[in-house]
């Protein structure tokens, strides 16, 4: 554990105890980043994020596995998009670099070490080599990412087969440009029951009005 109280505070923000301290995490991030040849690494609240080139994706996962991060936890993607059909926009859409980020979480079963391996996948060439050869469990996760985001995973034997969606379903529902069809048909009843769906204006108005409270019911 670290001696510095400020670092300890950062790590213990919110909830109880952490297995590792902040300084351990950044040292580990640096070590693993060098190991896999990451182009960028960072740690967010104790989550180590290693960005690697697409060509390096499978090799990096294999190296991490060899380093003891042998539990394949999950794989998924984020759609960084300027065009948002439903939900929240990014903070500054004009500066946004449109892309997919594919994340794969590997963790150790001996301690709290874990890594998010990240590859940036351009939208006009949405493909990433499959991890199935390294982790058999990647098959379902990649199929899910494939149908939800339209990312291809060459090497995955069943990547074209829908996992969750009906066979005849067209489109990739988790894309930001994909509308939420049920709300197209019928406005969400929660809107009247609870509150207006938040916009920037009414959030600020509400915050001005109430300020800090001791947390009443939502």
């Amino acid at each position: 554990m670290t001696d510095s109280p400020s670092e300890a505070e950062v790590m213990e923000s919110g909830e109880g105890t952490e297995g590792v301290s902040a300084s351990d995490v950044s040292a580990l991030a640096e070590e693993l980043g060098a190991l896999v040849g990451a182009t960028a690494w960072s740690d967010n609240f104790g989550v180590i994020r290693l960005e690697v080139e697409r060509d390096n994706w499978v090799a990096a996962a294999a190296k991490l596995r060899g380093r003891g991060l042998e539990l394949f936890s999950w794989l998924s993607a984020i759609d960084w998009s300027r065009e948002v059909e439903v939900g929240e926009q990014v903070e500054s859409p004009d500066d946004l670099d449109e892309r997919f980020e594919v994340l794969c979480r590997l963790s150790s079963v001996k301690n709290a070490d874990a890594v998010h391996l990240v590859a940036v996948v351009p939208k006009d060439d949405a493909q990433l080599p499959s991890l199935v050869g390294e982790f058999a469990g990647a098959e379902w996760h990649e199929r899910e990412a494939a149908e939800m985001f339209g990312i291809d995973f060459p090497g995955n034997p069943a990547v074209d087969k829908h996992l969750y969606l009906p066979d005849a379903f067209e489109g990739n529902p988790l894309l930001k440009s994909f509308p939420l069809l049920s709300r197209e048909v019928k406005p969400w009843p929660g809107t009247v029951d609870v509150e207006d769906m938040p916009t920037t204006e009414n959030v600020e108005a509400a915050q001005d009005a109430s300020g800090e409270t001791d947390g009443g019911d939502e």
Partner: peptide, 10 residues
């Protein structure tokens, strides 16, 4: 039972 949190969660 609950920490002080803003009424509107941002």
């Amino acid at each position: 039972l609950r920490a002080k949190v803003p009424r509107v969660l941002k």
